[in-house]
Amino acid sequence: MTACPRKPALLLALVVLIGLAARPAWAQSTVAEGQKLAFDRGKGNCLTCHVIKGGDLPGTIGPELKDLKARYPDRNELVAILFDETRRNPQTMMPPFGRNRILTEQEINAIVDFLQTL
């Protein structure tokens, strides 16, 4: 998964390309996978802080996650927020999921696919 950590951009481009090429089947499965990862307490555990459609017992620390595709048309922005939100906001509560290796790039990409459906 982290076999080539030095080439995140390349990997990203690759993932995006594959995503474009094989939209329907691939997209659906990663959306489901992304939702699972986002809700899993041992993985994203995003509900700790965010209201997300379909999730129980959300916290209130972060904003509700919705209309994200409209507000972040470039999915890389969402990837960046998940990778390390302290770059945008040094004081943020949001954990740096990518930088601190809580989630792999693949997992982050799956979650972003899910976020884009909200």
């Binding site: 509900l47 700790t48 802080c49 017992l57 959300p58 916290g59 209130t60 620390i61 302290t86 004081q91 509560m93 954990p95 740096p96 601190n100 290796r101 809580i102």
Partner: peptide, 19 residues
């Protein structure tokens, strides 16, 4: 790993729900 200080929760976010 989650990159929190005590203050993240108890100064920045008191009154907020965490779950």
């Amino acid at each position: 790993q989650l990159n929190f200080s005590c203050a993240s929760c108890h100064v920045q976010s008191p009154g907020q729900r965490i779950r």
